[in-house]
Design a protein around this nucleic acid. Sequence first.
DNA 1: GTCCATGTTCTTTA
DNA 2: CTAAAGAACATGGA
Length: 270
Amino acid sequence: MPELPEVQTVVDTLRPRVVGRRITKVHLGRHDILTPSDVDLEQVLTGRTIRDVSRRGKRILFLLDNAERFYIHLGMTGHLSVESRSAALAPHTHLQLHLEARGAPELRFVDPRRFGGIWWLGNSDDEDDDLGPEPLRLRPAQLRRLLSKTKRPIKSALLDQTVVAGLGNIYADESLFAAGIHPLTPTNLLKQDQVSRLSRAIKTTLRRALRHRGSTLRNYRDANGDTGNFQKLHRVYGREGEPCRKCRSPVQKIVLGGRSTHFCPSCQSR
DNA sequence: GTCCATGTTCTTTA
DNA sequence: CTAAAGAACATGGA
């Protein structure tokens, strides 16, 4: 469900409802959703106040008042919400954090497919050692350097979180369309001006998606339970056979690295 | 029953 | 050795 625009929207809707609130009770529904799995989450979280919520790549970082931290990754179907403790519990609710506030709210983490999870960091500061730069702060020279190392198709490189952190299947396809680059283009064959265009295209695509609060394809909701609207503005993703919004040629869908990949064969020639 | 899905990681193949 | 392809994870909707 979540790529950078969706994760950022979750963070933005979560922050005003949890920052400054004390955690009074913790319920972890299942242990295999937590890494490391032997952390006593109830012990480390109960009584702490949430000082901040932020995003790094697709990770949602929680900072506590004692400077310890953890992050939640939504995987494909993860969902965070703040609601009343008396509200019906959705199936596959894996974590509940009671918050000290009017209306007796709790933070809930639901994830049917369990590709997401909770990572306890404690005081360590290596939460993003394995992630590439933030795409919204990417400089073209930096992207050129990251891409020069490999021959694989550019679409696959964009999905690699160690190259750029936050793009997923939707925004990789949309960014390549915006840059006019064919998804199968070997990364090391991209010209300098193509990489510059791609760098700009990634930013404009993500900013547009952020303005529209992300894409809801199936079940994505922000922390308030609201859907995104950007799916209506997708130019290629999910539009196989439909006319390209620029040139009217039918949008093509191929499988690349096991992921569906959408592009306009005429606007994104090889 | 089949296929597909916004993600990541491990294994197999070339 | 490396890179790319494929499978796996688990669930639900079309």
